[in-house]
């Protein structure tokens, strides 16, 4: 008994040591990124990193594969753009409204989809997300094919001018860190423990008396809301919301980011998002060939390192939670 407790102690210390290093790298990166990365690009990285982390909460920690997460990302982008541009709301309020709408949409889509499991769940989320896509195309306020253009960034709390790149960057960085911390806490909370047990063995979680459907729905809403937060922030950064934000390809990309970075790891989706968005950026001169390159990377990833970048790293460092 004493021996086992010592082993427990050592591995926990090791784990928290590795985690501390990763936290330090993440915070350092978020704080210093504009020094060596073009600020708008750095903001794009953070928005997609948050999106991927929110997605990972569902796939990596609850075991639900949603194929329609672009609906939340895009809907929030449009709503935030609209309330800032037309209603004249300040940026924080605009982003809040977009996030709230994504959460409400998450409640509706989630309630319908979690009645089914596995591939049927994925198909229902895809189908409902396609409905949102066509609403984005057809509704009068969305600007159709052109999207919603010219969203003003405005002033943060009426004081800080968000048109200044560095001010905008640190605003986005703060949003990213808040979102990331919410996800981190959710994963490690008592609620997160139940989510993991549902992922591991749903029937058993049910037989222990947990209302599995309700846990899944709450996880879905949190994930949808934070995906919305990412989309809303993105629309303020780029000052437009477009059909790309709602497109199923965006739903696919976020899956790719999560798998490449490391499914069910804390930091994996951040690494995956940075990798994919950087590749798209660096290889943009190749045109459509970007997709071929990313497809090849995905194949290599699935064949050679299934746990994803951070997942493999965690295995090498012999720690279970990164």
């Amino acid at each position: 008994m004493a021996a086992s407790e010592r082993i427990v102690g050592e591995s926990r210390a090791h784990r928290s040591g590795v985690n501390l290093v990763l936290w330090a790298i993440l915070i350092l990166f978020v704080l210093t990124a504009p020094a060596y990365i073009y600020p708008v690009f750095a903001m794009q990285l953070l928005c997609f990193a948050l999106f991927a982390c929110a997605f990972n909460l569902l796939l990596g920690f609850t075991g639900l594969l949603s194929f329609g997460h672009a609906a939340f990302f895009g809907a929030a982008a449009y709503v935030t753009g609209h309330v800032i541009k037309i209603w004249g709301l300040p940026p924080v309020a605009g982003i809040f409204v977009g996030t709230a709408v994504a959460a409400a949409l998450g409640y509706v889509i989630g309630s319908l989809a979690i009645r089914r499991q596995g591939i049927y769940f994925a198909m229902i989320t895809l189908a409902l997300a396609q409905i949102i896509y066509f609403l984005g195309l057809q509704l009068p306020f969305t600007g159709g094919e052109n999207g919603l253009q010219g969203i003003p960034r405005g002033h943060l709390f009426g004081i800080f001018d968000l048109d200044r790149p560095l001010v905008m960057y640190y605003f986005v960085a703060a949003i990213f860190m808040i979102g990331f911390l919410i996800i981190y806490r959710t994963i490690h909370s008592p609620f997160g423990q139940v989510l993991k047990s549902i992922r591991e063995n749903e029937a058993r979680a049910l037989s222990l008396g947990y209302n599995v459907t309700r846990f899944k729905l709450i996880a879905f809403i949190i994930s949808a809301a934070l995906s919305g937060l990412a989309g809303a922030t993105k629309s303020v950064v780029f000052q437009f919301a477009s059909l790309t934000d709602l497109h199923w390809q965006t739903s696919g990309e976020v899956i790719l980011m999560t798998l490449l970075g490391g499914l069910g790891t804390i930091f994996g989706p951040v690494v995956g998002a940075i990798t994919i968005v950087s590749l798209q950026h660096e290889l943009s001169s190749l045109g459509s060939w970007v997709n071929v390159v990313i497809g090849l990377i995905f194949i290599v990833c699935v064949l050679a390192f299934r746990r994803g970048i951070v997942g493999e790293l965690a295995r090498l460092l012999k720690t279970s939670s990164m």
Partner: peptide, 20 residues
């Protein structure tokens, strides 16, 4: 996971894992 049910905090996604 089985024991935590009686604490009645299983929906608390904002709570620290320390409560467990």
């Amino acid at each position: 996971v089985a024991l935590q049910r009686k604490l009645g905090i299983s929906y608390h996604f904002w709570r620290s894992p320390r409560v467990l």
